[in-house]
Design a protein around this nucleic acid. Structure first.
Lengths: 202, 202
DNA sequence: GTCTATAGAGGGATAGAC
DNA sequence: GTCTATCCCTCTATAGAC
């Protein structure tokens, strides 16, 4: 017993507090980015002082890392695309994630804003995004390789090319969608692309 | 005579100075974005004080607008995609622009960083990017419409869908390329996509 | 046209009380 | 665990001298 809860005292609420801070962090970093978003504003949204916030995350970069981790966990929960034997299931999972994304503009904005910012070599999330793209493109490449083996991928496309194009299309559609949400149905546009390179139904 | 040059005095150099500032502005805004890039740093790069810079551009937003205008002019000069009768020529122009982009990482970074930032409604370049995407997607849509009429576009694709996908693919590939330049050949990836939706050679 | 000086706002992080 | 106070930094924009 008492493996998760604390022994006593008011600091038992720390995990909940951390979670509140992370939620506010998503909001602020998504609209202002990391560099120009302030931990002061995040703290205010949670109703605490900036110094109080820094009790939970010792500095701004650490908070960013925790925000990114939370986002990853949620995507992974919602759409498991990392099954080591999945082919078309991974592709379907990716498209489902795009449908889900259309319901959470904040998360989409977070991704677009931070990935563009993190393009700069000195950005605290630079390596994170390099690794993350390598991971996602890698997963999708393997999924397409299995589909190729099953004769489900058109001959003109390489698995890696398809994977990169899929990720790129997703990112680009997000920008257009954020600028004008009525302009694009992101998942539908992706399905359209996929129909062109797959020999089977989605 | 004296249509472009000034009558006399040292302020004849103003246009050149403005240009220098804009070049430095591209550098700084591309790596730091608009919000966290500072006019101070831009001024330093040109070798002048921050107050001196503000003699040429009355505030930071005005400088941003001028930077974006300069970028537009360059792209337009290099790759005319706005011919009102062009079909495949516009598509070729777009791909050529992607090849050119691979030689000017700074401009690519500027676009990615600012377009993501400008996703926020209060951003000074918000409307600019809405208009710009509408323009580019519109131009490419009309080009694909002409190609459709000429039987050069596969039946499964709509002109607007193709245009949006082309722009999205371009944007997304830029992010991956900026994070790891050895990972993607942006123009080649685009040609590959186009081969799938066109019935003629590029 | 460019400078210095300065106003005025906001940021991150730390120290120390409670 | 949270606060106030504070340090020190950076930023934009303006005023006014040269």
């Amino acid at each position: 017993m008492a493996t998760t809860g604390k022994v006593r005292g008011s600091y038992a609420k720390t995990p909940a507090r951390r979670r509140e801070i992370l939620e506010a962090g998503i909001d602020v970093f998504s609209t202002s980015g990391f560099r120009s978003g302030s931990i002061r504003e995040i703290a205010e949204r949670v109703g605490m002082s900036q110094a109080g916030l820094l009790h939970h995350f010792s500095n701004k970069s650490e908070l960013l890392a925790a925000v990114l981790e939370l986002r990853d966990d949620r995507s992974a929960e919602l759409v498991p695309i990392d099954d080591e034997h999945a082919g078309i299931e991974s592709v379907r999972g990716f498209v489902n994630l795009m449908d889900y994304n259309a319901t959470v503009p904040g998360l989409v904005e977070l991704h677009c804003t931070l990935s563009a910012e993190a393009t700069a070599a000195e950005h605290p999330a630079h390596q994170y995004f390099i690794d993350r793209y390598a991971f996602v493109v890698g997963q999708m490449t393997r999924a397409f390789e299995r589909m190729r083996a099953a004769g489900q991928l058109v001959a003109s496309t390489t698995p890696e090319g398809a994977a990169r194009a899929m990720v790129a299309l997703s990112d680009g559609l997000q920008v257009q969608w954020l600028l004008d949400r009525s302009s694009v149905d992101m998942a539908e546009e992706m399905r359209h692309y996929l129909r062109g390179i797959l020999t089977v139904e989605l």
